[in-house]
């Protein structure tokens, strides 16, 4: 039940932290138009630009193929793995979750492989290790440990997933249920709780930056409409008329 409480707190910190951080980004002004060009000319063009960045990591693909391969593979398989976990939280489980489930194991293996590759890059490419701090390795280690403990249960030390599902639904409905005392499960869930707490306050939140960065989310329409935010970069009022 300690773990139940810890997970509840972690989830609350995760959601609250995410909210606070995203609010902080949204509330920070953008004093000037600074899109990296060539940039789309319209808002809908910006939506497409961000769409391809989110779905295919387009800039990263153009910049560094290996980093893209490992990074994209990790995120794509992570999404897959998260979907397989959905079935612990919905009752009755949706039909298509069964299909996802069949491939979940392979996705998990691929995810850990991608993480190991990213760690290898960080360790052995001098340019990258030169900009790496201990917390960067720790984030990778945390994700790898979560992945490995999950895979251990999937392939070797099977756990009582009916009881796990009861526990998970108990989290959703705030109705504590007992958890099988299985060491891999406890490790797995404890690390997930740690991840949830750390996520909003670390570089792991980088996804939000993608949507908020003016270099990518501003359209290039400066000669068509005057950009007149409330304040300029230094907080001096925009000159003369403030009307856009």
């Amino acid at each position: 039940m300690v773990l139940y409480a810890f997970l509840c707190i972690a989830a609350a910190v995760f959601i609250g932290g995410l909210g606070v951080r995203i609010w902080a980004y949204a509330a920070t002004p953008v004093p000037l138009r600074i899109p990296v060009t060539p940039a789309p000319l319209t808002r809908s063009g910006v939506v497409m630009r961000l769409f391809w960045e989110v779905v295919l990591f387009r800039s990263l693909f153009n910049a560094s193929k290996w980093t893209w391969l490992f990074g994209w593979a990790f995120h794509a398989t992570l999404l897959f793995v998260l979907l397989t976990h959905l079935r612990y939280f919905v009752q009755p489980a949706w039909m298509w979750l069964g299909l996802v489930q069949d491939l979940g194991g392979y996705a998990g293996l691929a995810m850990v492989a991608a993480l190991v590759a990213l760690a290898g890059r960080r360790l052995f490419v001098p340019r990258i290790s030169a900009v790496t701090a201990p917390s960067d390795y720790l984030a990778l280690a945390l994700l790898i440990a979560i992945g490995l403990s999950g895979l251990a249960m999937k392939f070797v030390f099977h756990t009582d997933i009916v009881a796990v599902k009861a526990f998970a639904l108990g989290l959703v409905y705030l109705d504590p249920q007992p958890l099988p005392l299985d060491p891999f499960l406890i490790i797995h869930l404890s690390l997930v709780a740690v991840l949830l707490v750390v996520f909003p306050f670390s570089k792991l939140l980088h996804g939000a930056a993608l949507f908020f960065n003016p270099t990518r989310n501003q359209p290039d329409d400066l000669r068509e409409s005057r950009y007149a935010p409330r304040i300029t970069r230094n907080g001096v009022p925009a000159a003369r008329s403030d009307t856009a």
Binding site: T28, S64, V131, F212, N213, P214, R233
Partner: peptide, 26 residues
């Protein structure tokens, strides 16, 4: 602190780098 509060581009730059290394050879 003042600049970070006044420029989202700077705030994002200081918060979000994951040190993936894509820029390091550019």
């Amino acid at each position: 602190g003042e600049l970070v509060q006044r420029s989202r581009a700077l705030k994002v730059a200081l918060d979000a780098c994951v040190k993936c290394g894509a820029c390091t050879d550019k």
